[in-house]
Structures are given as structure tokens and as C-alpha cells.
Write a protein that binds this DNA or RNA. Structure first.
Lengths: 192, 192
DNA sequence: TATCAATTCGGACAACCGTCCAATTATATT
DNA sequence: AATATAATTGGACGGTTGTCCGAATTGATA
């Protein structure tokens, strides 16, 4: 129905505005008033749709997770072999770091924000788990890495995600991040 | 002189209190009043010694960097071979995650805080660079990893740090973090 | 002891924050 | 057309924030 899509749009406008504000200035430096202004909406609308600030931020995390999990999986599906899919994932991170660095900013920011709230922590934990799950599903590790009790495919998936994430952070801290981005290519030989 | 050491103590008390507050609740949830109370000091003392909030946080980062760079290097010096030193570093991270998880909380927190301030970003970037420098100095990568333009020893050092960092974050998000901590042992075979 | 700078103190200030609510308006249902 | 529900508005509220400043205290110097 019309009024429903209109409401969804209104609610979505708020999420989008929140996303923009947070990725530009960080969750700690953004007020609900900032988000309302950015969305072209009155302040009380935020509490109407999302109850309170934490509820709003939780929804931002959920939206972000949904969007990029789909995007990553869509990309992975294009690869024919495990090796090909690993390359796709690495290059996806590299491309994102180049053309959408604000995505990583908000990802890091929301992650550290989540450390201080049990409910948000669970959301963020699920996000990491789901991405690691994709890695495990589409990029199976065999070959050169010896098996032991420490490196099941699920463990390796998480460590690979950790490498991508931790290296990306360093890239974001770097004024000249291009070198750091390129160095992500090392993963291609590390996890093989 | 006496009054000087007293002042240093006063200033140091503030830093320590800031460290404690931030590692317990996150920089975004801590006010200067909280820190002053924790330090047993009057509010205006913070601005007297550190000018403003950012100045105080900058000093926290510097202190943290100094302390743990020394601690890490002291540990690395104990190892006799490159392989031994790599094990030491990995086990240092594992031990810290177990007995001092608040250290990682504040490390992640200050890192994401630094994304939104140019001056803090530089401090944090230096910290990462220095740790990577230690890795490069004490743990030289040769052996199984093929050389190319992408994996100089400095690049590998940063990626290894990224792996430690990114995997540690996932451990902090996990309610049962022990498995994640153990999986850091994979690094022993990954970077070899 | 008198002087002076460094430190400590208490409080003020204006600005901002998240939350809440009564009212108005829009939309759908009967 | 009348009614009920949902959405939107504007503003108020108590509380907290970072910053600043004048006065009091301390300790060293001469």
C-alpha cells in the first residue's frame, strides 16, 4: 500500500542519513539532531521509528550487514574455482578501500561502538560470523596449509577475514593508503 | 625536585584514570568529569595539564604506545631464532587477550577514535608502524613465501600485524573467545 | 620574610544532548 | 461522511558536556 511504502521510505531515509553522518564523522560525534537534519526529518521521528539512539544504530548495523553480505556473496558467485573466488574477495576489499573508504570507516566505527553494548556486540559478532561463513563456503582451504586442530576451514576463514580487516584498518590510518591496499595481494599467496 | 615529581604524579594519575575509564566504557562514553573523579582530581586540572579533551586522549595514546612497544620488544629479545620470536609474539597476543582483554578494547577504541581526527590519526598510524617495525626487525620472513613486488618484509610485517589485530577483534566480539584466541596459532604456519 | 610563579580549587557558563509528550495532520476503514 | 489509526510536528524537560576564569594555595627563590 501507498502509505506503507511512504513510511518505509521515511524510515529508510533516516537510516541512510545515519549511515552518511556516522561514516563521515563517527558515531560518537553524531547526534540524533544531525541525523534528522541530514534526513530532512523532524527530530522526534527518530524515536518514533527506532525508539532510541541505540535502536537506531542497531538498525544501521542490520542494514549494513544485509547489504554487504549480499554484495559479497553475489561477487563470490561469479568465481568458478576456489582460487578465483579468493581473488575476487581480495580484490573486492581493495576496490572498496579505493572507491568507498567511508564504508570501512563506518565498519570499524560500529565495531568498536559494539564493544560497549551487549546487544550491539551480538549484531556485530553475527556480521563477522556471516562473512567468515561466506569465506568458508566459497573459498575452501586445502592444499599447502597443513591441517591440525587449529586450522579447520572455519578457523582459517575467520583468520583470513581478520587479515583483511586488520590490514584494511592500517590502510585507513595511512595518508598514502595505496601501498597498504596493494599489499592485500599478499593474501593470495598466504592462503593458498 | 619534589614538586616536579608531585606534578608528574598528578599528571600521570590523570592519564591512568583516563586509561581505566576508556578501557572500561569506551572513549565516547567517558567524560572529563568521570576521569577527574577516577583520578581523585578536580575537573579543571585536566585542562590545565592537557589543554583539552583531545590533548588528553593524545597523551593516552602516546603513553599506551610507549608502554607496549617496550613490552613487546622486551619479549621479542628473549627469542633466539626468528621462528622462536614469531611464536613469542603470537603467544604474547594470546596471553594478553586472556588476561588483559581491556587492553584490546582500548586499543580498538582509540584506533577508531583516531579515524576522525587528523592529529590522533597520525599518532595511531605511528603506533601501528612501530609495531610492524618490530616485527620486521625481529621476525624476518623468508622461507616458503615467494617474493614478489607485493611482499617485501615490511609489507609482510604489516599484514601479519593486521592478522593479529583483525583476529583479536573477532575474539573480543565473541562471548566464548577462547577458540578465537587459540586460532591465532594458525599464524605460526601461515607466516613461515 | 617577602616575592613570584606554578599549581589547585570551585564554580560558572553557554551549548548540546536524548527523551518524551500533547497537538495536529494524513490516511485508511467502516 | 464519520471514525479510528498511523504519521508528523514543534517544543519542552532535565541533565550533561567541554571550556574557561578568578581566587586561593603551595612551594621555591632571593
Amino acid at each position: 500500500m501507498y502509505y506503507e511504502t511512504k513510511n518505509i521510505n521515511q524510515a529508510q531515509k533516516i537510516i541512510n542519513a545515519a549511515f552518511k553522518c556516522i561514516s563521515e564523522r563517527g558515531y560518537a560525534n553524531v547526534s540524533q539532531r544531525d541525523i534528522a537534519d541530514e534526513a530532512g526529518v523532524v527530530l522526534s521521528q527518530l524515536n518514533y521509528y527506532y525508539k532510541n539512539k541505540e535502536g537506531l544504530f542497531a538498525e544501521v548495523i542490520k542494514t549494513l550487514a544485509r547489504h554487504y553480505l549480499n554484495e559479497i556473496e553475489d561477487n563470490l558467485k561469479k568465481g568458478k574455482t576456489e582460487k578465483e573466488r579468493m581473488f575476487i574477495l581480495i580484490e573486492y576489499f581493495q576496490e572498496m578501500l579505493r572507491i568507498k573508504p567511508e564504508l570501512f570507516k563506518i565498519l570499524f566505527d560500529l565495531t568498536s561502538m559494539s564493544l560497549w553494548s551487549e546487544s550491539l556486540k551480538k549484531l556485530q559478532h553475527d556480521l563477522f560470523n556471516d562473512i567468515a561463513g561466506l569465506i568458508r563456503k566459497y573459498i575452501i582451504f586445502e592444499s599447502n596449509i597443513e591441517k591440525s586442530k587449529y586450522n579447520s576451514s572455519i578457523t582459517l576463514s575467520k583468520v583470513m577475514l581478520g587479515t583483511l580487516f586488520g590490514t584494511s584498518i592500517q590502510a585507513m590510518l595511512d595518508e598514502e593508503k595505496e601501498d597498504m591496499i596493494e599489499s592485500l595481494s599478499v593474501l593470495k599467496v598466504l592462503f593458498r
